Simulated assay, not measured.
Amino acid sequence: MTTPKQFLVQAAARNNAVWCATMSRSHGVVGEFGVQAWAAPTRTPPLYPDAVTLVPGADLSALVARIDTAASGASVKDSFADLDLTEAGFQVLFEAQWIHRPASAPAVAPDLAWDVAADPEMLRSWALAWDDGDGNIDLFRPELLDDPAVCVLAGRSADGRIGAGAVACRSDQVVGVSNVFARDGGADVAWPGVLDAVHRLFPTLPVVGYEYGDALAAAVRHGFEPVGPLRIWVHG
């Protein structure tokens, strides 16, 4: 029998796979959903996995066979933290927690004015703020704006500067939030605006995602509950 937390983890994992598939398509990489996992046969964009498991106890050999382990940096999102990929040449990059928040407005009012990036110029400005000099500005391509399930959320200060942001990706049962950032003050500054925007856009959907470390602690302060572990494995 599936427990409520197991159901939430499965919903969060599938939502995250939808987002990874969308990001990959925007870079010309087409993955495929199977019963046990989503996987891409060629290397996905930087920072994104080549496979995301969708059910506990996924078949390890079948999973690895669906991705290109000959390419540098191949990775797997082990959504239930129940696989051992070491014999296939992988090592754990990091561990995190899936998080869940019921559909509701934030308890704290946002300080910034929030809207959805609607054109390539605004998306570029958002990417510059998100990247903060790390060299991944081109990760977010204009093709993302054509997907009705994806909303790139931007928080602007009074002078129009993008000071915070996130990505919201809707699936059947939940809305997933990722890439949460604030240029000043960290996630605690971003979350009230992100949650307010998500609640306005998807008022009936619970919010999911995954975080670890200080970012996880910030999410908990804003009403999220950790519901289960995941691991990111990288090849090589």
Rank of each mutant, 00 (worst) to 15 (best):
A154D: 10
P142C: 11
L60C: 03
A70R: 14
D59R: 04
A12W: 13
A129K: 02
G165L: 09
V177W: 02
G89L: 01
D50Q: 04
A168N: 14
A218M: 07
L83A: 06
C151W: 05
A70H: 10
E225F: 00
V220D: 00
L205C: 08
A190K: 03
D147A: 00
G185E: 04
N136Q: 08
V227R: 06
V208G: 00
D134E: 04
P110C: 05
L145Q: 06
A190F: 06
S171R: 10
S157T: 14
P192M: 10
S24Y: 14
D146I: 07
G160S: 03
L230N: 05
M1V: 15
V30E: 15
A154M: 14
L112I: 04
P110N: 08
V189A: 10
A197F: 12
P203L: 00
G165S: 08
R231G: 12
G73V: 12
A158M: 13
G236H: 12
C151Q: 01
L144T: 13
G155N: 04
R66G: 05
Q10F: 02
V167P: 05
G193V: 14
L54A: 05
D196K: 08
A118L: 07
E211M: 15
A88I: 07
V18F: 02
A74D: 04
L216P: 10
L145C: 12
L85I: 12
L60V: 15
G209C: 07
D68A: 13
K77V: 01
V29T: 13
P226N: 05
D172E: 14
I99G: 00
G163R: 14
G34W: 07
P4Q: 01
G155C: 11
Y48S: 00
I99P: 01
T42Q: 07
V30T: 15
F90T: 01
N16G: 15
D188P: 08
E95G: 11
V150T: 15
A217R: 12
